[in-house]
Design a protein around this nucleic acid. Structure first.
Length: 226
DNA sequence: CCAGACGTTGTT
DNA sequence: GTCTGG
DNA sequence: CCAGACGTTGTT
DNA sequence: GTCTGG
């Protein structure tokens, strides 16, 4: 699963990498090391003019919701059955997006002490894309969810689920609003190869969602209890 | 048909 | 809006 | 995801 | 134990 991540690469570099236009205000997006559910984050989606990067709230609020509330856990969606779920059926067909990140966190429960956070990133330390779904509520609030899949062998040491990481070669197809049959993009939703990723135990400073800054990704030595 | 939910994960 | 349960 | 709160009334 | 806020 995926409930916290980083995006400290500059918006200009992200726009370049994803071949997308930055929405107004996004050029000033400050480096983030602790993006949490219910908070805004940059998302890449197709618009009439092509790919755009906009701020959306993490935690998908369906357009039919009475309240823009976080009543249910919609910051992740199971890729295996999202196309059949009431909340994701529409988004899976018409509103797929990419979530730019340069790493994400997972926590492992220990026998004693607080949970140990791990930072997962690419071995080459480059930014990458998570598969996302988005929606609009009351023509004013855009929000998104991150798809999950089976853990690869690296992640399986901590969890049996992981976020879907979209291979750059699949970006265009995933975003294509012309593909309205979930089967046409189902092959994109697979576990990313472990050998291209790294995991590092980091300080529990990141565990509090109010904490920010480079200190969040500070490595720590694994302990006997890890 | 209508009413009521609409979600995920880990842990027990 | 759309799915599930009764 | 984790951390932190978890309640009501009347009065100011 | 379970919900809300970040």
């Amino acid at each position: 699963m995926c409930g916290r991540y980083t995006l400290h690469t500059s918006p200009q570099r992200i726009a370049e990498l994803f071949d997308a236009q930055l929405a107004v205000g996004l050029a000033d997006f400050v480096p983030r090391y602790n993006i949490a559910p219910t908070t805004p984050a940059p998302v890449v989606r197709m618009a009439d003019v092509g790919r755009v990067i906009e701020l959306m709230r993490w935690g998908l609020i369906p357009h039919w919701s009475r309240e823009p509330s976080t009543k249910f856990a919609t910051f992740n969606a199971r890729s295996e059955d999202a196309a059949e779920k009431a909340s994701y059926r529409g988004p899976m067909r018409y509103r797929r997006c990419l979530v730019p990140v340069d790493g994400f966190y997972e926590w492992r429960k220990r026998d004693r002490g607080p949970k140990q956070p791990y930072l997962f990133r690419m071995a080459d330390d480059q930014p990458f894309a998570l598969a996302g779904l988005w929606d609009v509520w009351q023509d004013e609030l855009q929000s998104f969810s991150v798809l999950t899949t089976k853990a690869n062998t690296l992640m399986a040491t901590i969890h049996d689920r992981m976020p879907v990481i979209v291979d750059p070669a699949d970006h265009a197809r995933w975003l294509d609003p012309g593909l309205q049959d979930p089967d046409a993009v189902a092959d994109v939703l697979k576990p990313f190869p472990s050998e291209l990723m790294l995991a590092t135990p980091v300080t529990t400073y990141v565990s509090n969602a109010r904490n920010e800054g480079p200190r969040c990704i500070e490595p720590v030595e694994p302990t006997i209890f890890d």
